[in-house]
Amino acid sequence: MTTASLSGGPEPAARAVAVSTPVRSARRAWWRTHSAQRKVFGYTLLAPAALYVLLLVGAPFLFSLWLAVSDANVGDPVASFIGLENFRAAWEMDTFWIAFQNSIVFLVVAAIFKGLLGTSLAFLLLQEFKGKKLIRGLVVIPFTLPIAISVLSWKWMYDSQFSVINWALSRVGLIGGYGSESWPIWLGQPHLALAACIAVNVWRSFPFSAIVLLAGFTAVPLEIIDAAKVDGCTFMQRFRHVVVPMIFPILMIGFLFDTVFTLSDLSVVYLLTQGGPANASKILPVLAYQVGIQAGNLGRGAAIALFLVPLLFPALFLVLRSLKRREW
């Protein structure tokens, strides 16, 4: 692969740039022109990153596309093409639809909570007050701990018997004692199980949302807000018409990275419930892992995992739109 082939992006873009760049000198050979040198320099700088991603993400991705249309299983070196059979098999699977639905619920509910908590926290951190650095430092801790381990801490807090959450709730009288009807079994009641998994995701990510939003808010120049104030805009108007459009791209990027993380992360559900009870908290990555790796049907596992991609499309769409808005 050469750097030149990377430039083979859609022609219109290239043309647009070409038109916008004044043609410098017709006398010199094209490769000696300033613009040509700039391009060579540019593509050289771009090459390492592009190659890395192409070789280590692009190629493996194509390989898993092949898996999804083959009858590959973990122990059989020879796989043959079977068309969309794996997708059909997933489609016919009861559990697949449960997992699909749970993934969407997980994503949306988690996003709402992260948005709410993140925004309010960001607003608070925007204020000037004593001990701000300390508090800011404390609230970002969840984000810095390795997720695979902090989930285990939650597993212990959700324990059906020794749950510290239940102990506290019970002592203040909100719920009954251990063994009573009102003693919540966090990972055992269908709705609670999914909610418990979502809570861990929110706990881990809301500091990140807050930081991203904080970054956005600080980026809005005060003069603009002041100008809007002078124009008699109410707080909500200012927020809606001035702040939001300005930080929209940032919001989108934060949203996208978080969406990807949330959708494709299997560790929370896998370590907390394995998708139980009776599939109530099963999400697509966990199902793909169980079918593809643990039960060994690589092809079907890959097909299930690929269903994540359409789920990611809305996020992608929003981000691309916001990117277009940015000045290039």
């Binding site: 959700y158 324990d159 059906s160 018997q161 079994i185 055992g188 199980a193 009870p277």
Partner: peptide, 21 residues
């Protein structure tokens, strides 16, 4: 049983016994 069995993993019954319940 109580409803907690819906949330159990491989280690929960160990603790259930060890706690004396």
């Amino acid at each position: 049983m109580t409803a907690e069995v819906f949330s159990w993993d491989d280690a929960s019954d160990n603790r259930f016994l060890a706690s004396g319940i």
